[in-house]
Each structure stands twice: as structure tokens, then as C-alpha cells.
């Protein structure tokens, strides 16, 4: 898979407090906020029917199952994190065309959500959204 450019955000899962308390273990049943894990929009036909990255014109988003490794780079600072698939998401089609930039480094469309443990390695949780690239090596 060639590196995919887009946007990264974060989500909670597993045992949690507050509004996250109902999050559960995700589509794979293994998701934990404290683990290096992520949600991917194409984990199955059922997942893809919900996330619909094609609706935003995204091609090349490979089908990957639970436990598959991706590496996400924050384009604002070059920080990189390796994570495994634990859930289906983000719901890409709900934000088609959305664009996030840090200076001239930009990403369009939501392609990956990281757990808080993973996102906080590459950015502050208070940023909420960052341009990123995602690859498999």
C-alpha cells in the first residue's frame, strides 16, 4: 500500500469514564484506550458500507483485518506511531472534503482514528485532528 494522506483523530474504547463509558471493545473486541491501536475504515464489507471512503473519492484503502499494523505519521511534526487495527472507523463519508493543515502540510478526509495512548505519542489530545500519512512499513 502506498502511503495514504488524510486526517487522523482519536477515540476512546474499552473500559472508560464519562461519555466514553459505553464505548466497548470495538469491532474486534480487543480495543483499549491505553493500547497502541486504531480504527480503520475498511476492515470488512459491513464496515466499508458504514464508513464509505469511496464517497469522498478515496481509492487505495486496502481491506485489512483485526490486528493488522499501520504506521501513522503526524505531518505537523513528523512523529510516527505503529498501531494495530481494533475497530471499524472513522466514518469518513460524514466529513468528505474536510481539510486540516499545519502550514503547507495538509491532509484531506478522515482515514484513521487512534486510541488516546497512540495519538498522544504524536500529538496532544487537545489538538483533536491532524493531517497525517498512513503506511504499512
Amino acid at each position: 500500500m502506498a502511503a495514504l494522506l488524510g486526517e487522523v483523530s482519536w477515540f476512546c474504547c474499552g473500559s472508560a469514564w464519562g461519555p466514553c463509558g459505553t464505548a466497548g471493545g470495538g469491532a474486534c473486541g480487543t480495543c483499549r484506550s491505553g493500547n497502541y491501536q486504531h480504527a480503520w475504515p475498511n476492515t470488512s464489507d459491513a464496515c466499508l458500507a458504514i464508513t464509505r471512503p469511496d464517497a469522498c473519492g478515496i481509492t487505495g484503502m486496502s481491506r485489512r483485518g483485526c490486528g493488522f499494523r499501520h504506521y501513522t505519521t503526524n505531518l505537523c511534526n513528523g512523529a510516527r506511531i505503529g498501531t494495530t487495527i481494533a475497530d471499524c472507523g472513522p466514518q469518513t463519508d460524514l466529513f468528505c472534503g474536510e481539510r486540516t493543515c499545519c502550514g503547507s502540510a495538509c491532509g484531506s478526509n478522515r482515514i484513521i482514528d487512534l486510541t488516546p495512548a497512540a495519538y498522544s505519542v504524536i500529538a496532544s489530545l487537545s489538538t483533536g485532528l491532524r493531517p497525517c500519512s498512513v503506511d504499512t512499513v
Partner: peptide, 12 residues
């Protein structure tokens, strides 16, 4: 920390 594993430097 290996991908998929808990991060000992993180807490919630």
C-alpha cells in the same frame, strides 16, 4: 512498545 500493546507511559 509494540503496536497493539499497552503503553506503560500512559494512564487513564
Amino acid at each position: 512498545v509494540e503496536p497493539g500493546m499497552p503503553d506503560p507511559n500512559f494512564a487513564e
